[in-house]
């Protein structure tokens, strides 16, 4: 099924998403990857506030290439989500609603998605030029010293993603492969 969704994403929206749905996201989303997640986790350990609002927000696992003059961003496709598995359950329990990345997640992350009525989307890996066209603005919010790994806030329009893990714990990576396996 095709769906158009806007951020921030509520539980009402995630309840209606199913693994395999093709979605177009419009609105503000945050960008963070390895180093930024590590720093956010350390901040929480020290009892500090997160540098971004988290309730019903979306994090895109991505590190863009530099923007040319007059453009909001460079190439901007998803990075492998499993490297953020260590940190994701904690953020989901704090209210994070959606993650965009590519690749498999651990059982701990999938359990946290179900527990928090959240969603894990995949964007097409290696399509960074195409995906960059849906990004209308990009602003570094914090951790500027991390360069390509800084936390950014993006405004996206009709950003194409596919529901991989829905709020009931269905996992498209497992079901779709079975459908086409013939070995």
């Amino acid at each position: 099924m095709e769906q158009r969704i806007t951020t921030p994403i509520t539980s009402e929206v995630t309840s209606n998403l199913s693994a395999g749905d093709y979605c177009y996201i419009t609105g503000y989303i945050y960008v963070a990857r390895d180093a930024a997640h590590k720093r956010m986790d350390e901040a929480l350990n020290k009892g500090e506030e997160l540098p971004i609002p988290i309730e019903n927000e979306t994090i895109y696992y991505m590190g863009p290439s530099p923007a040319r003059e007059g453009r909001p961003i460079g190439s901007a496709g998803p990075t492998t989500a499993s490297r953020m598995d260590k940190y994701a359950p904690r953020l989901l329990d704090l209210g994070l609603k959606a993650m965009i990345g590519k690749g498999k997640r651990t059982k701990e992350v999938i359990d946290a998605v179900v527990r928090n009525n959240a969603v894990y989307f995949a964007a097409v890996g290696g399509a960074g030029a195409l995906l960059s066209k849906c990004i209308k603005s990009s602003e570094v919010i914090c951790y500027d010293d991390l360069g390509a790994e800084a936390i950014r806030k993006l405004y996206v329009e009709d950003f194409p993603v596919i529901v991989v893990v829905d709020s009931r714990g269905n996992n498209l990576y497992e079901t779709a492969i079975k459908e086409f396996a013939s070995l």
């Binding site: 590190g63 290439s65 460079g74 190439s75 496709g77 030029a129 960059s132």
Partner: peptide, 21 residues
Amino acid sequence: NQLQENLDIADKEMIPICQDT
């Protein structure tokens, strides 16, 4: 098909094919 489109955009607009260069 999206990967084809991606290659076209990379070529015409000078955006790296993938952000992980």
